[in-house]
Design a protein around this nucleic acid. Structure first.
Length: 421
DNA sequence: TCTGGGGTCCTAGGACCC
DNA sequence: TCTGGGGTCCTAGGACCC
């Protein structure tokens, strides 16, 4: 059996762990630039007018009137809390697949039926005790069933956050309760198609002819269909596979017209993604750079463009990648627009040790590598971005994200440690 | 005035090869 | 006048997830 453990309103819960005074109060967490609501605790959800991804400026009044506590997102804190939750889960099984920042699949094979139920409750209890984070636990024969069971566990109060699909009756109960659009793997588009056949619940979906599913929802849909019957199509995997693409793209805190600032942001992002690239021991063969104005605006002139640069030899050197990316940026930049976002993506990622070198690359490669190593070492010791490519500059405040309500990074920075009086 | 960011996988179709 | 069949690789776009 497989358990899916999912943290309740994870970001909001993380904030509340360090603010016990907020118990029982509505709390929301905002996206980058404090733009949208991306997490809400149950008190905030009870105020029905806070749908996720709602732009903050549209509901500012309501947030204030109801004394909803707002936090800017604090990913440093959330990642660290996530690791604490995952480490607790590893006490239950060596096979834990981290599916996202706030959920994991845990292998429970080899347990008897009663042990499974007992373990499910124990997981919930222990994670809360060790980390302060409330979780729901769903268990089933397949990932898809575990996922639906988790949802059922949380949504139906009498399940108390735990639901185990250990019989055919339970499986049918779960599928009949779950609406088509709420099935994991059926999004908006597919939900419409499925509902057109007359199917209303996951149970109805599982009764559709497999050929129809295959034709309309590709092999992914077919796997889901089979998993809902209890047939395993998606195995658990412990090791995170090396990323196929690494990218970053963030909206500026302000609309930018100054090319120099856009260049700084672009170079900054390259440094970030190149760092990730080196951490996984890879090199990239292609860089994409894109630039866009604010598509929501009715008044701004619109422009968006992108360019892809192919490297002669795959590289993970921040210096080399920066040079090429900025060349690309120059190519697509047009003056006279108010830009909203710049982004970079690295593709054609491959392991660094068995690269095919170009005829003239050897010397440059060696030089760059020693330099890059030295920079990484300094930044590890003295803090992120202490040594950087000059283009990055020091004007971050003029383009970086707005975070007006960020909580302290209490678990990763000595200086921001919580004080208890 | 103010609207997130980071991923994965699959398919169809074009270019190219023999 | 008549012009095949089988394959690979790449890319763009679509759909989904958190």
């Amino acid at each position: 059996m497989i358990a899916l453990v999912d943290c309740n309103s994870f970001y909001a819960s993380c904030e509340q762990v360090f603010r016990p005074d907020l118990k029982g109060k509505p709390v929301v967490v905002l996206s980058n630039n404090d733009g949208c609501v991306i997490a809400a605790n149950k008190e905030a959800k009870a105020l029905a007018y806070i749908p996720m991804f709602q732009p903050v400026y549209k509901i500012k009044k309501e947030l204030k009137e109801n004394n909803v506590v707002c936090f800017s997102s604090n990913y440093t804190l959330y990642s660290d809390m996530s690791q604490r939750v995952m480490n607790t889960l590893r006490e239950f099984s060596p096979l834990v697949e981290e599916y996202s920042i706030d959920e994991s699949f845990v292998d429970l094979s080899g347990h008897s039926k009663s042990q499974v139920i007992e373990t499910a409750y124990e997981i919930k209890h222990r994670v809360k005790k060790y980390t302060g984070i409330p979780v729901g636990v769903g268990v089933g024969n397949t990932k898809s069933l575990a996922k639906l069971a988790n949802r059922y566990a949380k949504k139906l109060a009498e399940n108390e956050g735990v639901f185990v699909v250990d019989s055919e009756e339970k499986r049918i109960e779960l599928l009949k309760w779950t609406k088509v659009k709420d099935v994991w793997g059926i999004g908006r588009k597919h939900a419409v198609r499925v509902e057109k056949t007359g199917a209303k619940t996951a149970y109805d979906f599982a009764k559709l002819p497999v050929a129809w599913v295959r034709k309309n929802m590709t092999v992914i849909g077919e796997r889901l269909w089979r998993e809902l019957q209890g047939e395993i199509c998606n195995e658990l995997t412990i090791l995170p596979s090396a990323k196929k693409g690494i990218g970053t793209a963030k909206s500026f805190g302000y609309k930018l017209t100054d090319y120099g600032l856009i260049e700084e942001a672009c170079a900054f992002y390259i440094a970030e993604v190149a760092d990730l690239l080196r951490q996984q021991g890879s090199a990239a063969g292609k860089i994409e750079v894109f630039l866009t104005t604010n598509s929501f605006s009715n008044t701004d002139k619109q422009y968006r463009n992108r360019t892809i640069i192919t490297l002669d030899t795959p590289s993970s050197s921040t210096i080399k990648l920066t040079k090429l990316a900025l060349k690309g940026l120059r190519k697509i930049y047009r003056p006279g627009y108010r830009y909203k976002k710049v982004g970079v993506n690295l593709f054609n990622i491959m392991p660094k040790d068995n690269l095919q070198l170009g005829l003239f690359d050897v010397r440059e490669k060696i030089e760059n590598e020693a330099l890059t190593k030295a920079i990484d070492l300094l930044n590890d010791r003295y803090g992120k971005n202490k040594v950087k490519v000059a283009t990055v500059g020091n004007r971050e405040k003029e383009w970086a994200l707005i975070k007006e309500h960020r909580s302290p990074r209490c678990t990763t920075q000595w200086i921001e440690l919580l004080e208890v009086s």
